[in-house]
Design a protein around this nucleic acid. Structure first.
Lengths: 215, 215
DNA sequence: AGAGAAATTATACACTTGAATAATTACTGG
DNA sequence: CCAGTAATTATTCAAGTGTATAATTTCTCT
């Protein structure tokens, strides 16, 4: 009887990379970027530390890749639901606000990651560019939806007003996102999204009500 | 002529502690908690690293003291202006919103500190208690001001509504605070506060306008 | 089945970190 | 003025860090 226990299994580059990135995100969320050590990440991904250098030329590169991965995930989770809605601009705005204030976007881990990455984002030009692009995209989408919904309602507004409205609604969503992630037990399911819709409604004068979602 | 160059100067325990705390906050804002090394802090405070242990029994204790110091500063800067106002509840609410969205509360460094401390705050029970107390105090004050201002205007609201309003206004302020600190050049001086007052006005139905401030 | 190549592990290294201890220095009280 | 004491510096230490390199192991291809 030969020894059937293999010491390790070869995986595709893609799945290994992803496993390493996911382990990295876990540890960054728990202990910050500096607290996410190469050894810790390797252990979490069930490999030895040498393998990390085989797929990423440095820890810096792994961190950057993990950040990119996370930002893509968050963006997708936020925009997919709103894009799926085929109805009026008002309905799309409502879906957008709702998606932004519902798990998995609202999540303690997402807050932790956001905070952990902040320092590095502000120092590394590449990460900074990624961050600002994502942020601008979010706000521009919001402003476009508000503009369209107001036009649709026959209540167009001047650009300066639209800018202010977008800034305020964006801030409101950010703040609720933060509160929901920081104090997960302080809000009933759906409560944050409801508050978000009502508040955006109050600020814009539009009537955001949660309608039936088309699958 | 004797040698007048002293190798160091003895300082009072208080001033040395504060110097160490300020140096700690600088480095925590720049490099995060783990990036704020004992040696770096000592260098920034112009002492040798051994001295830190003379005043703080561990780095942990120094970090905690620095966090406490920062939170006290932020709370004072936020509440002092509103407390100074002797007028109506509406005026006090206006002053509160304005102070929350004006330097030095709005400040890139404050954001960086908030993010840097978040991990540790969530793990250390003592720091977590400090954080939650500060947060609850802020929101309760806001809810009380909104309640008083609505009563004053002859438009009282039920508790559930007041809670939602406080959550939303708090989130708005948090979000604007975040945006202003993260993108300091994106807003004209006073613009954030103006947006904040207008948005709180829209959500509450109150008329917040910046009045003359009594000295 | 077996050699070649790539994936993975194993080991080593130079450096940083927080902490501990020993050695100086400056101030204070008589 | 000068001892005593506390503040401050100087040095040391063990553990942890990212990175580099060497040694294995698994898989593929014919």
């Amino acid at each position: 009887m030969s020894d059937e226990r293999r010491k390790f299994k070869r995986e595709s580059a893609e799945s290994r990379k992803e496993a390493l990135i996911l382990a990295t995100l876990e540890l960054v969320a728990e202990n910050g970027v500096r607290g996410a050590t190469v050894r810790g990440i390797a252990e979490r991904a069930d490999v030895t530390q040498g393998l990390i250098r085989h797929y990423f030329s440095s820890k810096e590169e792994l961190i950057t890749a993990a950040y990119e991965h996370h930002m893509t995930f968050m963006t997708d989770q936020t925009f997919a639901p709103a894009s799926a809605v085929q109805g009026t601009a008002l309905e799309r705005l409502t879906a957008f606000v709702t998606a932004s204030l519902t798990p998995p976007v609202v999540d303690p881990r997402a807050i932790a990651l956001w905070a952990s990455f902040l320092n590095k984002v502000q120092q590394d030009p590449h990460m900074k560019a990624t961050h600002e692009r994502t942020y601008a995209y979010f706000r521009d989408q919001l402003e476009a939806l508000i503009t369209a919904a107001l036009n649709e309602a026959g209540r167009p507004a001047p650009p300066a007003r639209l800018r202010q409205l977008a800034i305020a609604c964006n801030a409101l969503i950010d703040g609720l996102w933060l509160e929901g992630g920081a104090l997960p037990d302080a809000f009933a399911p759906g409560e944050l999204a409801e508050i978000g819709r009502q508040s955006v409604a109050a600020m814009t004068g539009l009537n955001l009500k949660q309608g039936a979602e088309t699958s």
